[in-house]
């Protein structure tokens, strides 16, 4: 992926750029709003990581509003130390696609970025999802593995659908909570893990190769072959 990072803090920038490059992405970096807007408007990126508070008279919100006004639809992930609930709402309203509060885990940032960039590509409506020998029919709402029908409840279906749509990508617990249950809250305990483990009982238990894998300190990934 070709990514743009607009962030003024040198340490945070170095950390993100290094990480994203190690994950195999190309990263451009701007350390102020004006340069960032110039880069974002003049070049093509798969996703933009945008800090809320930037020096140089143009903060993240204004930058994004300006960018969206030119018709640019590049997915934008807000990165901000302003973690108050209203700030999140403001960021999403201004045209942001996702919001991550500082301090954050690198794995969470990477997972969200990959999900964002992917979202733009897979817009074509599909009726069937497939990962290895696991098949999901979105119209009949059935799940089969190796040809065998597997009973899943509606919410498990949505959870599995999200994992399959993001096959090969790490998805974090918060992402699952937001995407599958559509609530933004802190579940306190490992409720997501419990749901995943039930899903594993149905999808993976009786079959040779597991498809749902745990990624330590990050979340889960659905993957056919290792």
């Amino acid at each position: 992926m070709r990514l743009l990072l607009i962030e003024d803090d040198a340490d945070v920038s170095r950390f993100i750029v290094k990480g994203l490059r190690e994950s195999g992405h190309t990263v451009e970096h701007a350390d102020n709003g004006r340069d960032g807007l110039f880069l974002a408007a003049s070049e093509n990126f798969d996703a933009i990581v945008l800090d809320r508070m930037l020096p140089g008279g143009m903060d993240g919100l204004k930058l994004l509003e300006t960018l969206r006004a030119t018709g640019n639809r590049t997915p934008v992930l807000f990165l901000s130390a302003l973690a108050e609930l209203d700030d999140r709402v403001k960021g999403l309203k201004a045209g942001g696609d996702d919001y991550l509060a500082k301090p954050f885990a690198y794995a969470e940032l990477l997972a969200r970025l990959e999900a964002l960039a992917r979202r733009g590509q897979s817009d074509a409506p599909t009726t069937k999802l497939r990962v290895a020998d696991l098949e999901m029919d979105l119209l009949a709402r059935t799940v089969r593995r190796a040809g065998r029908l597997i009973e899943v409840q509606p919410r498990e279906f949505r959870l599995l659908e999200y994992l399959m749509r993001h096959a090969g990508q790490v998805v974090t617990r918060t992402m699952l909570l937001e995407a599958v249950w559509d609530y933004h809250f802190d579940p306190q305990t490992n409720v997501i893990d419990v749901h995943i483990s039930r899903l594993r009982q149905k999808i993976d238990k009786d079959f040779g190769t597991p498809l749902i894998h745990t990624v330590r300190n990050a979340g889960y990934i659905m993957r056919g072959e290792i």
């Binding site: 919410r155 249950w181 579940p187 305990t189 490992n190 409720v191 749901h195 039930r198």
Partner: peptide, 13 residues
């Protein structure tokens, strides 16, 4: 209903 759904799995555990 959503809340129960989210937590009932943990309760059953």
């Amino acid at each position: 209903a959503d809340a129960v759904e989210i937590y009932s799995a943990s309760a059953e555990e």
